[in-house]
Design a binder for these strands. Structure first.
Lengths: 216, 216
DNA sequence: GAATTTCGTAACTGGTCAGTTACTTCTTCG
DNA sequence: CGAAGAAGTAACTGACCAGTTACGAAATTC
């Protein structure tokens, strides 16, 4: 039975299932991102959440259920942030630049998201495939890119016959890869790619690549 | 004491430390790539290798030592294959195209390499950082790209002021990301990106992006 | 062919961890 | 207040697993 909100303006609640649930998910995100699915410890998540194991199993059934929920929540968050993007009033070039910057900085700001996706790919996306929610998560970024491409082509500033899905993948790749592989790349190149300076160089280059390609 | 080769042409050897060692590493590569470091089972590696746990601990000390050796070996293999690349006699455009194709197909052909790198990045490259061998593994691809860029710029077919390291990262990203995230991308797009047809579309697009960018 | 070293097997150990349970404490609401 | 149920705690269980050991078999050396 779905819990309907009581009309009484809640007094001082110390029982806060929603808060407890969210605390568990926050703790799980950190733990899973740091250690992967098999490396993560349920006891650690319980301790970090300020709650306890019993609540975890009450709300999420088991470790796998918790993993799936954390994963879905991460996608939802990305989708929410992407939804706020509005490039309709920008020029195609400006818009594309803004989009890439957003994507790059989202990756920079959400290393847990990167780690989570990599872990899920290690499992061949077996959890995501069983997710009912994921169908609606088709990323809004794709819609925005399609629009920008059309306008740019009409105005003659972008080349023709660019597949939006391919370009989306390219943009995603240019942001994601850098942060996904930042530790091995830093080691091999002997540079600290985490530094803001290096990140700026990388973003500028990425934008130059895509805009350079899009020239008619 | 390093074992010097006996002058006698070995008869029928049933003792073959090198073979056993390699079998263990092959088995470990598969297991680690499929399940990550913490998910992999030493018993499973022993069984798959046709050898046994005792030998694993004899040769590699512990699970972590085995992991590091597998990782180094994967890098070495890549380096060897890259070393065979010779684009000196190709035109800059041809050479760049060939290089990207090589990189893309290497990723396609070596999914274990992809999985290994992702797992190592999850650990913040802590094993690679402690590797003595890794310093010499600075990828030869970088040298080849630098050469191609110079020639292309001199001949006027490539734009000027392109940083080879940045371009290398871009090329690596365009190949790696697709295969690294192939399962989640396939799920979200509802397409089977593993199919050769989709792979060709992706490679063609990637080449078009880089060559499009490189136009003066 | 005896001594020595290498290799293989399987049982064992000590620790870890997902998931459960018994029990206590707190909150809510009549 | 007092009953009912929700939330919390910590000990427990049973499985699993990295790493070890004891012992035997085979191969190599002298």
């Amino acid at each position: 039975m779905p819990k309907s909100k009581t009309p009484t303006p809640e007094p001082k609640r110390t029982r806060q299932p929603d808060v407890t649930r969210r605390n568990i998910l926050d703790a799980a995100l950190v733990e899973f991102a740091a250690k992967g699915l098999s490396g993560a410890r349920v006891d650690e998540i319980a301790a970090r959440s300020g709650s306890n194991k019993r609540m975890i199993y009450e709300y999420f059934g088991n470790k796998d259920g918790l993993w799936l929920t954390v994963l879905e929540r991460a996608y939802e968050r990305m989708r929410e942030e992407e939804h706020a993007i509005d490039v309709a009033r920008m020029s195609p070039v400006e818009g594309m630049r803004y989009l890439m910057e957003f994507n790059f900085k989202f990756c920079s700001r959400n290393p847990e998201f990167i780690a989570l996706l990599n872990a899920e790919n290690l499992h061949k996306a077996s959890f995501l495939k069983n997710s009912k929610k994921i169908r609606e998560l088709y990323t809004p970024l794709l819609v925005v890119i399609t629009d920008l491409l059309q306008r740019g082509q009409r105005e003659g500033v972008f080349r023709k016959n660019v597949d939006p899905v391919e370009l989306y993948t390219t943009i995603a790749a240019l942001g994601f890869f850098y942060f996904s592989n930042i530790h091995t790349l830093s080691t091999i190149f002997g540079r600290n790619l985490l530094s803001p300076k290096q990140q700026k160089v990388r973003l500028d280059h990425s934008i130059a690549v895509v805009l350079g390609y899009l020239r008619p």
